[in-house]
Each structure stands twice: as C-alpha cells, then as structure tokens.
Amino acid sequence: MKLAVFVSDYRMTVDTLDRLSPEKMGIILVQNGVYHATLKENGTPSSILNKSAEFYALKEDLETRGLDTSMVDSKVKVITLGELVDLMFNDYEKTAWI
C-alpha cells in the first residue's frame, strides 16, 4: 500500500510513524509539521527525517511561519497545495493524519 502521512505538528516523539510500514510512504509536513523540515536541535535534524520515506513540506505553511525554502533540509521537497492534490491522487492511495 502507498501511504501518505500528513504530519501536522512538531511533537518530537512521533511514535505513530514507527508503527507504520507501508510498501511506500510519503511524509507530508503541513502546518506546524513543517518545522521538522527546518529546525535542528543541537545541530541534529528532526528524527522524522530518518524514516525511509519521501518527504514533502507545504510551501504555504513554510511561508506563513517565515521559513525560507533555503532553510529546508535537502531530503524534503517543497510543494504547493496543487502539487499536494496531484500527489494524493497519483502517487499515494491511502492517507493518515497525525
């Protein structure tokens, strides 16, 4: 199964993700979840970025928080809402929201 997981918050211990093992996983960072793409703690990026998944961050939510795309980790692709819709319909079958 191809699963798109929407991460909408910046809680460090996102153990729900640890219990997910789809054939293909896309982690889509939205709302405060975009901080996982930019913040480092003691120089270390968010542990979410260690998952084996494709990573995306919503451009609009980065901009709302004053986060420039240059600050985004190289593993993460910055997408618009239109591109998000395409991802949902073309690249993934199921969704989850955490």
């Binding site: 709302q31 809402l81 239109g82 998000l84 819709v85 319909f89």
Partner: peptide
C-alpha cells in the same frame, strides 16, 4: 487549530484541479 483552514484550502486546490 488550523485544521479547518487546511481542509478548506485543500478543497479549493482539488476543485481547481477538476476533482
């Protein structure tokens, strides 16, 4: 919570794509 805002914006983007 910005969930409602997100839901409405995603709806707009999907409708714009013809869904």
């Amino acid at each position: 919570s910005l969930n409602l805002d997100f839901a409405v914006k995603l709806s707009a983007a999907a409708i714009e794509k013809g869904h």
